[in-house]
Design a protein around this nucleic acid. Structure first.
Lengths: 128, 128
DNA sequence: CTTAAAATCAATAATAGTTATCAATCTAGT
DNA sequence: ACTAGATTGATAACTATTATTGATTTTAAG
């Protein structure tokens, strides 16, 4: 939990595992997953399942939006207000009861936009 | 592609595979995945990766929103207008260039809401 | 302090969706 | 018919995640 709160990035379970091992060298990946599941169950963190592959985790449990860079895979928080009114609008269509929503923007992050060259080591330090 | 267009549900690769076998009994799951990947690459279909497990596919390539039932897993289209202005609003924050966005609502679908009982066979016919 | 039950953990096996491989088959152009 | 290239079915490989297990640690009681 401290690890997840200490970063504003949105790390994968594997990255958290690496960080945790710096403090508890003998911790196992299973323990990381187990505790992430508990924290998620508890509503203290969010799981962002992104692509059909791995998930990223977010230490901020209140709803907010994300920007995903299509090039480097970085996930950043988006600083615009949450549109709660959309949930009521959806409920009016009769599809069901809306509990929450998730909004993600995809594009090219500022970092990748400026360094358009594919020079290695430039972008993608947090992708896999 | 015909199979995907013929349903308004948002099937999994496995379901598409089952349907395809009714027409081409010898088709393999690999071929389904391969062609789904090609169609996606081509922009003719959308992949909805939902949860960290399986993906669902959507034969409608134009952006629209989805409602996911937390109980039965059903995915339905949401009939509200697309908020293109959000993308411009996000770009103003300087996070990067926004190409598209994805918005999903989570809750209890009308079907599950009415039949609250957990009677088997009631809901979940399209879940796994 | 001792002991027994409960909880936690590390290590590892198992699961499942997806992707890659590859030989065989089909297709088009000549 | 002949060849080159693309497509397919079958199957193996891969990867993130989950479950299992056996051992160690913690807790609580006497």
């Amino acid at each position: 939990m401290e690890i997840l709160r200490s970063t504003k990035s949105h790390p994968t379970a594997d990255w958290i595992y690496d960080q945790a091992r710096k403090v508890l060298p003998s911790i196992s990946l299973g323990t990381v997953y187990r505790n992430l599941a508990i924290l998620k169950e508890d509503g203290q963190i969010m799981e962002l399942s992104y692509g059909s592959t791995y998930s990223r985790y977010d230490g901020n449990p209140e709803n907010h939006y994300h920007f995903v860079c299509l090039k480097c895979g970085r996930v950043e928080d988006v600083d615009i207000p949450v549109r709660g009114e959309l949930e009521r609008e959806v409920e009016k269509t009769g599809v069901g009861d809306v509990y929450y929503h998730r909004l993600e923007f995809y594009g090219l992050c500022a970092h990748c936009r400026s360094s358009r060259t594919d020079k290695p080591g430039g972008a993608g330090e947090d992708s896999r």
